Amino acid sequence: MTVAQILVDYMREHDLRLTTAESCTAGQIVTLLAEVPGSGSLIESGYVVYSPEAKQRLLGVSPRSIETFNLTSREVAEEMALGALRDANANAAVATTGLLGPDDKDGIPAGTVCFAWAFEVNGQRALFSRRERFFGSRGQVQLWAAEYVLQQLPTFHQRAVAGERR
């Protein structure tokens, strides 16, 4: 079973509907999920937002957050996830922003990806984020980041259901 198949089963079992806010994964998260038959009813929307302007315009990411923390930051990923969740008819959101490489940029090592998971549970929002680094080609890092965010979604959802908010 693939990561996406396992997650689709989990989402169906827990009545989750997902929206995504993807930068460095460029739609790969939605693509992986869409390969699973029957997943269409569980995917509400998917944003692919590369530029700072698109992150601000479509997801409400604060220019101050970008300036203060950089595009590759947990703070920006969190704002992306919350923006997607706010705009969608969904109860779960994931976001990715990072630097695939091959070169480091602005002191950020290639392969660094920031992730966020946001949930609406019992009328309350829960938000979690992580920063990870992957080693490989651009394509490998992109795929591994997309799989990672899907693999971790059930863990963070369970934490949200248990009452954790961050």
Rank of each mutant, 00 (worst) to 15 (best):
W117D: 12
G107T: 05
P63F: 11
I108G: 05
D103N: 13
D9R: 14
G139N: 14
A146Q: 02
A88N: 07
P109F: 12
A54Q: 10
G40T: 07
S41G: 04
E75F: 03
L18Q: 15
L59E: 04
Q28E: 12
Q158P: 00
L150P: 04
V94P: 04
A21F: 03
A92W: 08
K55M: 05
A93N: 11
R130A: 12
L7V: 04
L33I: 15
L143C: 00
G163D: 02
L32R: 13
E147I: 00
E79S: 01
A162P: 01
V61A: 06
T31M: 10
D104Y: 09
M1A: 09
T31E: 15
F135N: 11
F135P: 00
R74P: 03
P52C: 14
R131Y: 02
I29E: 04
N70F: 14
C24V: 11
G139W: 08
T155F: 15
D106F: 06
M80C: 07
G46A: 14
S23C: 11
N91P: 09
S41K: 13
R86S: 14
T96Y: 12
V49S: 12
D15N: 15
G123W: 00
Y50I: 10
V141Y: 08
E79V: 06
R17L: 11
Q5G: 09
L143W: 06
N89R: 14
A90H: 06
L58T: 00
V30W: 07
G101T: 13
E75Y: 01
T20L: 08
V76N: 00
P52R: 06
T31D: 06
R131T: 11
L143Y: 07
C24E: 01
F128E: 02
H157Q: 05
V48K: 08
L85D: 10
E53W: 02
L32H: 15
Q142L: 07
L99S: 12
V149E: 01
Q152F: 14
L150K: 05
V76S: 01
E164D: 15
Q142F: 05
W117G: 03
L143K: 09
R159V: 04
Q5Y: 00
S65P: 07
V94W: 04
Q5M: 08
L99Y: 04
Y148Q: 05
T2C: 12
I108F: 06
A84I: 14
M80Y: 06
H157R: 07
S65H: 07
D106Y: 09
A118L: 12
P109D: 15
D9F: 02
F69S: 05
Y148R: 12
T31F: 08
A21R: 01
P52V: 00
E75W: 01
T72H: 04
R130D: 15
Q28S: 14
L16Q: 11
L58K: 02
Q151W: 01
G107Y: 07
R17A: 13
T20M: 05
T19K: 05
V30H: 10
D9Y: 02
S45P: 03
Y47D: 05
N70W: 03
Q140K: 03
K55H: 09
C24H: 01
E13S: 11
R125M: 10
K55N: 03
G46D: 04
Y47T: 04
Q56C: 05
T112H: 09
A88M: 13
A54T: 07
L32P: 06
N70D: 08
L58I: 02
R86K: 14
D104M: 06
T155I: 09
L150G: 03
R74S: 12
